[in-house]
């Protein structure tokens, strides 16, 4: 039995799933819910492993989760095209919207596949904290050092914090306001004042500082009197 994935033909056995054939042939398909150690466990719930089943004859192409899609002879699959990318991105955004982003206190920060995927699919809303291995007491904020990680776009793999220095926001401020509020709250909880945050924010552009100031006003965050 043969199927075609991204234009290349591969042999497979009846009953196999498309994800497994791709994996055997080193074709990368992301997944969050499939148990990498035990492939029997596959709730097919995360929908990140979506692929396009190319329609045969007059049939329309269909998006299917590859981990639950059984192979059939002559099947044609596309894992990398714009439709697949966009759909996976949307799924990730939906998952992220329901995800409590307390990365600073999360046990897998610094080694988080979900955060990596969000970065790979260019989703704004994941801070450097998700990539930083210093959680809880190790967090710079907990040690009275103002680290800009909570309001900074991820993607650097937290290079500075991994090497013992606080984040200086090379990748710039996140544009996802929910996460920014979360980050600003984290500054406040750790005793930093509005002035201190604005001082550190001098590395940002005028526009970015204005967004931070507006959020502080709107949500009454880092109120000087309260913090002091």
């Amino acid at each position: 039995m043969k199927i075609t994935i991204d234009g290349k033909e591969f042999s497979c056995k009846p009953g196999q799933k498309v994800y497994d054939v791709a994996e055997e042939n080193d074709i990368y398909i992301p997944t969050l819910c499939l148990n990498k150690l035990n492939h029997e466990e596959r709730p097919a719930g995360c929908r990140i492993c979506l692929v396009e089943l190319v329609g045969q004859g007059n049939a329309e192409p269909k998006l299917e989760s590859s981990c639950s899609l059984p192979v059939h002879d002559g099947m044609e699959i596309s894992t990398k095209n714009k439709v697949v990318y966009d759909e996976r991105r949307e799924v990730l955004e939906l998952l992220l919207s329901e995800h409590e982003q307390d990365c600073r206190n999360c046990g897998i920060s610094g080694d988080c596949y979900f955060a990596d995927l969000c970065f790979e699919y260019d989703i704004d809303g994941v801070s450097v904290c998700s990539e930083c291995p210093n959680r809880k007491d190790g967090c710079f904020l907990a040690r009275d050092i103002l680290c800009l990680g909570p309001v900074t776009h991820a993607g650097c793999n937290a290079f500075c914090t991994r090497n013992g220095d606080p984040c200086e926001s090379c990748f710039g401020v996140l544009s996802n306001k929910d996460v920014l509020v979360f980050g600003l709250e984290a500054f406040g909880e750790n005793g930093f004042t509005r002035d201190q945050v604005l001082e550190a924010a001098k590395v940002f552009s005028y526009e970015e500082v204005r967004v931070l100031e507006e959020l502080m006003d709107e949500y009454d965050l880092l109120n000087k009197e309260v913090s002091e």
Partner: peptide, 17 residues
Amino acid sequence: CGRTTHPRRLIPGGFSK
């Protein structure tokens, strides 16, 4: 220094790591 160019671990007073 943490990387080949532009050292990160060198800080006033010593090393961050």
